[in-house]
Computed example of a mutant assay.
Amino acid sequence: MTTYVWDYLREYEAEREDILDAVETVFSSGQLVLGASVQGFEAEFAAYHGAAHCVGVDNGTNAITLALQALGIGPGDEVITVSNTAAPTVLAIDAVGAVPVFVDVREEDFLMDTGRIEAALTDRTRCLLPVHLYGQCVDMDAVGRIAAEHGLAVLEDCAQAHGARHHGRLAGTMGDAAAFSFYPTKVLGAYGDGGAVLTSGPETDRRLRRLRYYGMEERYYVVETPGHNSRLDEVQAEILRRKLGRLDAYVAGRRAVARRYEEGLAGTGLVLPRTAPGNEHAYYVYVVRHPRRAEIMAALKERGISLNISYPWPVHTMSGFAHLGYRPGALPVTEALAGEILSLPMYPSLPPELQDTVIEALREVCG
């Protein structure tokens, strides 16, 4: 039997009755698009974060895209972010015609090195886009200070940080807007695609609602400004409403898995995750580091254990972004990490016996 990096089937078995009831609730409601389930989820997700507004959209990529547009970011504007992220972060910047500008990450926790932001500023910089990577937050005190000093918008990429905190503040509550993904693997995952944007700005909220619905505001067929078809699905919204009540339990389960790894893998030579000062880690993925990555992954695959790499190719090295002009060595920490990081199985319903199998195999291979 293969042990996978992520598996939803045990969680589904435990929650099956509630999930199927969510589907039945929507199918029998008489309204399948932008109905009570989307409205309810938006209100509850906003309330969980203490935010004024939540706008449900079709996926996490479009959450970033629409948020950038709602914040007034467009062609020629520069957005400072990181290359050690999933490509959709950067694809969204490109989609609005803006230019991604990369800063390196910190070696100790793989998060945006905020000490490098000011050197990357130009007269075209309009937005800072920190990525709360792997389940913990960027130093948002530093990001907020720089943004305030230079008049920049702040958009948090929270796709991997549901339930994470920085000095007590939830991810998604520390900028002008925050984009979330509810892809099934996420800490709060749907049973398909989904996304949302949080904001406490009423005008940003109004723009987002217009942008996700073709650019229409009050009357169908009347386009106020060109928009998209990016609505959160009613079924996914209702499932997310049910799962939102279990979000804190999901995070607690992930932290328990992380503690077991930390205890079991001590002394193996693996560089284990380090939680940054002031952070409360949600452990979306459990990323370790070792110079013999390929050997370790091959050995565990032979034992039926599937590992993953998040991410093996920094965005600035991809051929699709060659036009940005980044050369090898431009982001040395990011590039070094890409050759050594690997992700271990991580999800709340991971059985202790399977986790112990992973730990024992790693101790044997790394020892």
Rank of each mutant, 00 (worst) to 15 (best):
V197Q: 08
Y183H: 15
L188K: 12
G151C: 10
G195E: 06
T185E: 14
G175D: 03
L188T: 06
A177N: 05
L129C: 13
T185Y: 04
A159W: 01
R169N: 05
L198H: 04
T199H: 05
Y183V: 11
Y191G: 08
T185W: 10
F180H: 13
D157R: 13
H167C: 11
A153K: 15
H167P: 00
D193C: 12
L155A: 07
G192R: 12
L188Y: 08
A178K: 02
T199L: 12
A161D: 04
G135R: 12
L152N: 07
G201T: 01
G172Y: 01
A142I: 01
V143H: 03
A171Q: 03
I146D: 01
V154G: 05
P184G: 13
V143L: 09
V197T: 08
G195H: 02
T199E: 07
Q160G: 05
H166A: 12
L170M: 09
V143I: 15
P130A: 15
A164T: 00
Q160M: 15
L198N: 07
D139F: 06
M174R: 13
S200E: 02
A159L: 05
E149S: 13
D157Y: 05
G192C: 11
S200D: 13
T199M: 06
L128K: 02
H150S: 10
F182R: 12
G163P: 02
V197C: 13
A177I: 08
K186D: 06
I146A: 07
A177M: 06
H150L: 08
T199G: 06
H167I: 03
R165W: 00
A164Q: 08
G172E: 02
D193L: 15
H150V: 06
Y191T: 09
T173F: 01
H166M: 11
L198C: 09
Y183G: 05
Q160W: 06
L188M: 13
D176V: 02
L152P: 00
T185C: 09
E149G: 08
D157L: 10
M140E: 05
A178Q: 01
R145C: 04
A196P: 00
F182D: 03
F180V: 09
D193W: 11
E156Y: 03
D157V: 14
G175H: 04
A171M: 06
Y191R: 14
S200R: 15
G194M: 11
Y134V: 06
L198E: 01
A177T: 04
A161L: 08
A153V: 08
V154S: 09
G151N: 09
H132Q: 10
G175Q: 04
G189L: 13
G163Y: 04
F180L: 14
D141V: 13
G135C: 11
A190Q: 06
P130I: 14
H166N: 11
L133S: 12
R145I: 01
F180S: 13
A196E: 07
G192H: 11
M174H: 02
A161C: 11
A159K: 02
G175K: 04
